[in-house]
Design a protein around this nucleic acid. Structure first.
Lengths: 205, 205
DNA sequence: CCTACCGATCGGTAGG
DNA sequence: CCTACCGATCGGTAGG
């Protein structure tokens, strides 16, 4: 599997993992070089700057989130099913690469302009898609709430902790995680639509 | 108001705000000195190290969260009311000081040992208190879910984005925010227990 | 991909 | 609270 990775891809993957663990600012190019087994100066034959790595990770992840959402929104009729599909799509992307997800969610503020503004605009566009799903659900009488923006941010925030503990070898599949989250967020704790989920989760931290 | 603050408190408050905006690692002592209008070396007459500031903020916030939870849990009978009170208490602490909350939630990983382990143990203890509320609610037939740990992390994650946009002069009070969040998390989007909340929120970012 | 190196900046100390 | 300064480390370049 690793044999087919270019040096540039290896650098990106290793950097992403370090950025997740220590944060972008606290990760030095010498840390990265050390993890790769080369000298710091050698990294610059493959990338232009430390920030370029961050940019590539952030915007690649943004692409993936939009692509997953496009597919999810395509075929659903009710707002409820559409939201469930959007949640499942979001969880799929988060679990597919937890390190890149963590960097996307937490390290974007170290982007310089104009990349920072681009990033924030993309994020707002993504949230707007969710807002529209909620709004249409309210209109159709499927959802009951006063404020779409508030609801969307609560939902996304309720999904975006998954990267902290998810491991592919854990007991829950991404599909099961998505179902569980949809059930909690759509029906709440007090609804009796219980789910059958293994009660042992992969430990966080 | 500011007149009664000691220099040490001024340093802590200014540092907290910078740590929130730029992150702990990307904030230099010269940034901090500049914001205070003094020389970097002068800061060290009041504090021992940069990390000491982070430690003080993190553990003071931990204290506040526990204290608020103690009060909340004191007087409630049903698990539902207890959870609502715990959510309201958590939101109160988050909104009382958004900068310190952001540092508490996101910068703790820059703590060195043994502080890091202490921090993680405290966080687990806090989460365990929520788990116990949920567990007792399941036992009493108030809540329906398969996994307390998963539920608690989703709930807390659904609350912990508030510091990114809350401003005291905004349209929603902390009490209204807490009610809104309790309604979403306990009843879900599909329940018709609608709330009357101003539909204009303080803008995020 | 390496050696050799750059200027800038880091957290922090000495001594007043 | 300041001046003066420390050794270490930073991101990055030159030249091979």
């Amino acid at each position: 599997m690793e044999a087919t990775l270019s040096r540039k891809e290896q650098i990106e993957i290793t950097a992403t993992s370090l950025f997740k663990k220590k944060g972008f600012s606290a990760t030095s190019m010498r840390d990265l070089a050390n993890a790769l087994g080369i000298e710091a100066a050698s990294i610059y034959s493959h990338i232009k700057s430390k920030e370029e790595i961050l940019q590539r990770v952030c915007f690649r992840m943004a692409d993936e989130f939009f692509e997953a959402l496009d597919t999810a929104e395509g075929s659903e009729s009710t707002a409820t099913d559409c939201l469930k599909a959007a949640i499942a799509a979001h969880v799929q992307v988060l679990t597919k690469n937890t390190a890149a997800s963590a960097v996307f969610l937490h390290e974007w503020r170290h982007l310089s302009e104009p990349h920072l503004s681009t990033y924030l605009a993309l994020r707002d566009k993504y949230e707007a898609r969710f807002r529209e799903i909620i709004r249409s659900g309210i209109e159709k009488g499927e959802f009951f709430l006063a404020d779409e923006k508030f609801a969307v941010l609560t939902i996304l925030s309720g999904l975006n902790w998954i990267h902290t503990w998810y491991k592919p070898e854990g007991k829950m599949t991404p599909e099961e995680i998505a179902e569980n989250l949809s059930a909690m967020l759509l029906n709440g704790l007090t609804s009796s639509q219980e789910l059958t989920i293994p009660d042992t989760l992969t430990q966080s931290n």
